[in-house]
């Protein structure tokens, strides 16, 4: 295997008695897009700050590009571009001045600063607004400016903390597309943390599910899905034209079908859990009983179900931490992938 570009070994961070990050081991290969998923307060940002040497770990080592981030933060920062979750700019300066300031600080030669920053503004789609004050920028524009800010230094690794927050859906698509393209063309390693599962699923090669300071799962979405739900039921839900009567005579026959494990009736929708995929048989069965079928859905497991599964297992530990569970449940959309 290649030498990992980001290597965390036994990384631990305690705030008093609270363990924000608990013995985290993680390896990210060069050129990979890695998604760090977890509810708010799971320790994602803390982990990222430790990778940049902005926070000292209580125990363990974070190595980025083979450099210990705690003892040599400057060398790490030269190679890593970091966009914080609520990225801020000097409101009284124009956007391009903000960008040029960062470019100079990161040691770009003076004769390249102007051209490069202009190119970057064009790249992230802010070419028309580059002489506006940064204070007049919208949230989405700031996010793009943040990306320009990260890219202008030509980093080997990009760390994005909640990069899609506050951008409209089409902007998110562009944004993630751009990140993916850059990563593929230039071989940049990308680590992004998010709780927008659907978006992460689209763009990441590998994801890690991070709850309560622990990495619960690590791998690509398909592998995770297989591991988790292999012993599980296939669920098919069938919607009928009319709600079946309470005392339904065909129910025993349905339950007696080969492979059927459970049947749940909810209004017009009937959910059938089976040990293997018998959707065609079910349809034939209902048609044979002369019932009108309006829709048939076979449930598939995406990242959200995976995530939900992990989260359900851990929710008891987090009930005391009201911030993580309460906010989480309100914020996360739980669209069932159909």
């Amino acid at each position: 295997m290649e030498q990992p570009i980001i290597e965390l070994a036994g990384l631990t961070k305690c705030y008093g008695s609270l363990k924000a990050v608990d013995r985290l081991d993680l390896q990210i290969r060069p050129g990979e897009i890695y998604g760090l998923l977890g509810p708010n307060g799971a320790g994602k940002t803390t982990t990222i700050l430790m990778m940049l040497g902005l926070t000292e770990p209580t125990a363990g080592v974070a190595r980025v590009c083979g450099i210990n981030a705690t003892t040599h933060p400057i060398a790490v920062k030269r190679k890593v571009g970091y966009m914080p979750d609520n990225v801020g700019f000097y409101d009284s300066m124009t956007a391009i001045d903000n960008l040029q300031y960062i470019a100079r600080l990161s040691g770009l030669p003076e004769d390249e600063v102007k051209n490069r920053s202009r190119d970057m503004m064009e790249l992230v789609g802010l070419g028309d607004a580059m002489h506006k004050k940064a204070g007049a920028y919208s949230r989405g524009m700031k996010q793009r400016l943040g990306l320009a800010d990260v890219l202008i230094r030509q980093p080997a690794v990009i760390i994005l903390d909640e990069p899609t927050l506050g951008i409209d859906p089409s902007g998110v698509k562009d944004f993630l597309g751009l990140i993916r393209q850059l990563s593929r063309e230039q071989g940049i390693t990308v680590l992004l943390s998010s709780h927008h599962l659907y978006q992460v699923q689209q763009v990441c090669d590998r994801v890690g599910i991070f709850v309560g300071g622990k990495l619960l799962a690590d791998g690509d979405v398909a592998t995770l899905s297989r591991q988790l739900f292999s012993g599980d039921h296939f669920v098919t839900s069938i919607t009928l034209a009319a709600a079946p009567p309470a005392e339904w005579d065909i129910l025993p026959a349905l339950q007696a079908m080969a492979g059927v494990k459970a049947v749940a009736v909810d209004g017009r929708t009937i959910e059938v859990s089976c040990s293997h995929n018998i959707t065609p048989d079910l349809v034939r069965f209902f048609v044979g009983k002369e019932m009108d079928i309006m829709g048939v859905l076979k449930k598939e497991y995406g990242l959200e179900e995976i995530y939900q599964r992990y989260f359900d297992n851990n929710i008891t530990d987090h009930e005391k931490d009201g911030k993580s569970s309460g906010l989480f449940q309100r914020t996360f959309f739980r669209k069932v992938k159909q």
Partner: peptide
């Protein structure tokens, strides 16, 4: 408070 501090400290400066 403006969020510029983390951004600045992520640059290679002491």
């Amino acid at each position: 408070n403006n969020g510029t501090l983390t951004r600045l400290m992520a640059q290679p400066v002491y």
